[in-house]
Simulated scan of single mutants.
Amino acid sequence: MPSLEPKRGAGGRRPLSAPRLRAGTPERAGLDPTELAHLADEVRALTAGPRPWAAGAVVVAGRGPVIAVAEAAGWAVRYSSCDPGTGAGVELPPAARVPMTVDTPFDLASLTKLFTSVAAVQQIERGTLGIDARVGAYLPEFTAAAQHDITVRQLLTHTSGLRPELPLYDCPDDTARLALLRAEAPLAEPGTHLYSDLNMLLLQCVLERTTGLTLDVLIEDGITRPLGMTATTFGPCPGAAATEDQRRPWAKADRGMLRGVVHDENAWALGGVAGHASLFSTGHDLAVFCRTLLAGGSYGPARILGPDLVELLLTAPGLGFAVDQPWFMGELSGRGAAGHTGFTGTSLVLDPATDTFLVLLANTVHPRRRPPDSRPRAATATRLARAVRGA
């Protein structure tokens, strides 16, 4: 395991700053312009036709401190509702639709987990949280987690054995929701990989207990404010891309067409601030997040983590981050690329080996959810990988 002592520059001092992102040509970024042109064309094609992969999409990609691609396609709002009989969207008149722009915020869904994970690793760096400490040491009232000796590392690596989710949205109040979480025992033996939203909800509880601060404050103070990520926030976010006409039986709650309020039913039930899914952000802000991690935790004059802690975060199996997953990373996988996807259609990949990053944001659940298809995510990542090789 990498050392938890942050690396320092020449003379034992940390570098004073890391270059900020700037727009530039593919050639300036050391990328093949033909491959990137294909990437942009393919993203536009994803939003075309009567039943597109997504109503709209934004792609931001680059290498080093250069953003070589920043494109928007389709619609932030295309449908008024979903026809329950046909499953098709009821389209708004063209004049009533809202075009997608590169500055459109998106409901990040599970990309929120990356911010919760960074917030946790910041506390590990500061010594206020032990990576191998038992959850029960911080939250003794979480009796099931305490009884099974679930650790902070297991929460971060999805090896606690906890089931993927609980129906917190069906609980009558916060007291009942908290009681359900406290009593939830692992479904699998701790140490077994089982992706679970509950890991990040428990981690949120640990962070809030150990710091005395709520998760939204921790993320704003520790990540978004120092990095200048002014478009990254917990909802409501009125200008965001629309998500779902959320109704039973295809959804878990009856809320109607959603825009600017969190899509995930559990995050909604928890008041819109949840460790697993509740942030909104833009392509540019997420590019800053990627660039910060590729630069060892620094961006401009800000430093949110030391390089060794970033290495710990991104090294397989990853802390919150997925590592080398070809199903959404395409040919960027296999060399230590890290990233995540979100249920609403969001994803990001950063590749330390080539110093590249890719943010693909789409509202694939507009106007309703359907079986996920990550082939377009993998295809765009492959285009970026080939742009590196063809440069």
Rank of each mutant, 00 (worst) to 15 (best):
L180Q: 14
V261E: 14
V217N: 01
P186I: 07
R225E: 13
D170I: 02
G271I: 14
A277F: 07
T192H: 14
L270W: 12
R248C: 10
R209Y: 01
E244C: 10
V206K: 08
T175V: 05
L168R: 05
A269D: 04
G191N: 10
T214L: 13
A269C: 10
L201G: 00
A251K: 01
T210N: 00
D221E: 12
E208V: 07
A267M: 10
S278W: 06
D254V: 05
D221F: 00
G235I: 02
L187W: 02
H193V: 11
G272R: 06
L166T: 08
L155E: 09
E265P: 03
E208I: 06
I219W: 06
D173H: 14
C171R: 15
G161F: 13
T230Q: 11
D245G: 09
D173N: 15
S196G: 05
A269I: 08
L155Y: 08
V262S: 13
A242V: 03
H193D: 01
T233Q: 15
A274W: 05
Q154L: 02
L218Y: 03
E184W: 00
P236I: 03
G256M: 03
L156R: 03
N266T: 06
Q246N: 00
E208N: 02
D173F: 14
I223H: 11
V261F: 04
D245V: 07
L215Y: 15
M229I: 07
D254T: 08
L258V: 09
R259V: 10
P236H: 04
C171P: 00
P236S: 03
G228H: 12
P249S: 12
R259L: 06
T233E: 15
L178H: 11
E265L: 01
P186N: 05
Y169W: 15
L213C: 11
L218S: 08
A185E: 06
L207M: 07
S278M: 06
A185Q: 08
L215S: 13
D245L: 11
P186Y: 09
D170Y: 09
L270A: 09
T224P: 06
D245N: 11
L207R: 07
R177P: 10
G212N: 02
D254P: 04
L187M: 13
L187D: 08
I219C: 03
L207I: 07
R255N: 07
T224I: 05
D197R: 02
T210E: 07
V261K: 01
A240E: 12
P249Y: 13
S160M: 04
A240Q: 11
V273M: 15
F234G: 06
M257Y: 13
A185Y: 07
A179H: 13
A240N: 11
R255W: 14
A242Q: 05
A241G: 10
E165V: 04
C171W: 00
P172K: 14
A188V: 01
L218A: 04
L187Y: 10
A274M: 02
